[in-house]
Design a protein around this nucleic acid. Structure first.
Lengths: 200, 200
DNA sequence: GGTCCATATATCGGTTTGATATATCCGCCC
DNA sequence: GGGCGGATATATCAAACCGATATATGGACC
């Protein structure tokens, strides 16, 4: 049984406690969202598939609570989760629109490039703030659980990014000061040729 | 005319020089891939859409070179590119399987958690190495073009991540040394309950 | 009794991914 | 000159993913 990424998220959460699809989506949005998102459109079909495969099962809890179906993980489910945790694979994708813009920024006069970096800094500041809130909201726990490390990673990354942006802004402004008028004269049209042999 | 993300990548590259879909894909893979990927399945249909919208046009270069169709950006295309660059939006998505695993790692005995972090370190080391190669392959240019900043960002991020992993490994190992035998006794079964109120 | 919000499942169009099919051109070696 | 392999080039597909929204119920509050 090969797990889809969404499948691993579901099993992961269910390994903690019984949950409905709605619960899972809520928890994802307040936790893993920062490095792994999931939508209803993925979660509900995947719950059914996992149940069919016997990795999870609907918990028959008493009392008709609306249409709610809570699921719990089964033995094979736990096994599948552990197998995934230990399979040694580990992908990473970054999708960063600000970086993309910066990459193509030689179609832009120099004075406006710094704006792009400023917007990036703003973005990372926002993420860091939210993570800080989450961090402060934690009740203290003993033993430094794994998810706390993950939170530290998110916070650290965004702080690093903020510093990078600030340094870059400083560089750009210094540069603009250097080459006299470089920030007003370069502009449009030239941009179309300038990057012809761009090749990062 | 609202650009799709892939559309902006295409316009961005074409603002540098004429290219075919194949060229674009190749350039993406050796550059923007690190923070923005694109596949054939996106590029070719998007080229047609952009051409229909008049933002790019097939360049009628002499000599039948196979089925090759190179495109060049038009005036409206350049305008659209600039508008996108300046629209102030900037999303960022991280998809990090290693982090996801770490988040759910209390289903795992402590001794094995460190393996997850080691795998992450390996991943980032690989990315950093490749970026370093790209960096060294650059012919020197005057004036520090924007894409060089982007390269520095990628390199910096991965280096930061490596350091984070190394620190985390050290922490985990120290911890394992602390609570006597903590790395052999905890194990399976307990994991299923341990994370019940996980809430990053 | 009515209003509002949280809970809960379901679905949809559009985008992205990753792999693969198909075919041609070009250099190279025998 | 003939055949091989690799680079060039376009096209397509199933599966996954995303973001938004439709629909409906339960409970709280006034």
């Amino acid at each position: 049984m090969d797990l889809t990424p969404t499948g691993t998220v579901i099993l992961g959460f269910l390994s903690g406690s019984e949950m409905s699809g709605y619960d899972i989506k809520t928890r994802v949005d307040e936790s893993t969202r920062f490095f792994w998102a999931a939508s209803y459109g993925q979660i509900y079909p995947e719950l059914k598939r996992l149940a069919e495969a016997g990795l999870i099962e609907p918990s028959d809890q008493p009392g008709g609570e609306r249409g709610r179906i809570a699921y719990r993980i089964t033995g094979p489910g736990l096994e599948a989760l552990r197998a995934w945790l230990l399979n040694g694979e580990s992908t990473m994708e970054l999708r960063h629109e600000g970086m993309l813009k910066l990459f193509f920024a030689d179609a832009l006069p120099r004075s406006q490039r710094v704006e792009l970096v400023r917007a990036m800094a703003e973005l990372h500041r926002g993420k860091a703030d939210r993570l800080r809130l989450v961090h402060e909201a934690q009740r203290p726990v003993e033993g430094d659980p794994p998810w706390l490390a993950v939170l530290r990673f998110g916070l650290g990354f965004n702080q690093w990014a903020i510093e990078w942006c600030d340094a870059e802004i400083a560089r750009l402004e210094a540069e603009a000061g250097d080459d006299a008028g470089g920030d007003i004269g370069t502009v449009a049209g030239g941009g179309a040729q300038a990057g012809a042999d761009r090749d990062v």
